[in-house]
Amino acid sequence: MNTVPIAAYISVSAVLFALGLLGVLSRRNPLLLLLAVELMLNAANVALVGFSRFHETTDGQVFALVVMVVAASEVVIGLGLVVAVFRQRLELNVDLMSRMRG
């Protein structure tokens, strides 16, 4: 059986991780920042599943499933905070969130 080489999995996941990091550095809206972070976490998932196949064990896939749950809970807190900020009628832009400086 022809299998996808491990290098392919890792390349895809590295590109996804880099895209996520780029998003975190360039976006200013908290919602989009959360999306970018999700991309980084899922890049790790791709790597985990790829390595899992490479080493012929299911451990990595179990880890990936756990990561999905954790990522979901992180987003729930994030969205909750965004709604709370919105209710206070604050600007949804992390650059303007600078009441504290120094």
Partner: peptide, 23 residues
Amino acid sequence: LKYLIVGAVGSAFFLYGLAMLFG
């Protein structure tokens, strides 16, 4: 909100490192 975003980025780096260790 600041802690969430920075902390989540830190977690993502950490997780990717763990994935590499597994690899």
